[in-house]
Amino acid sequence: MTEKRRYFRILPLIGGLLGLLFTFMASIPLSSSYSLPLFVMESEGTLFYVWGIVDTNGIWHGFDQICLDNIVPFILWVLFLFISICGIFGTSYNSNPATIKKILLIGGFSAISIFVYFSIIFFLNFGLFILGFGYYGIFLIIAIYFLSAMLITDYKNE
């Protein structure tokens, strides 16, 4: 009987790539006329992304320079990048399963902290914000990371 070989884990890869999409992109083109916006929240035409803010006039506020005004969003962005890299690192099949599980759990808990941060902003200003695909996407990443961390024991027992 030939042994079934695995080279990488697919779930953390999906989670990591999804994280990278939210970290760097504003929208995903689905067809020539429609693209899926990746904003986390929206208020009166102002879109709040993981990487910055876009006004109704199309003016953006990003991280041109690190100053006190944008230090919290910048830390948030770096944390999200870290979460994505955790997912990519978690794909490694031949590494020690305990280490990979730890990396995925760290990524998952970091994603929870960002989810809680946006939830607090949303519920403190209830009715002012509309949630976007980015908010549900963060929840999806948390679910993927914890599910893949749970499944690692199954891989080991095969």
Binding site: F24, A26, S27, S35, G62
Partner: peptide, 17 residues
Amino acid sequence: PVGIYFAVGITSFTGIP
């Protein structure tokens, strides 16, 4: 580049210099 979107090509709203 961050805030990448597809218009007439690949463009981005902002970037980290």
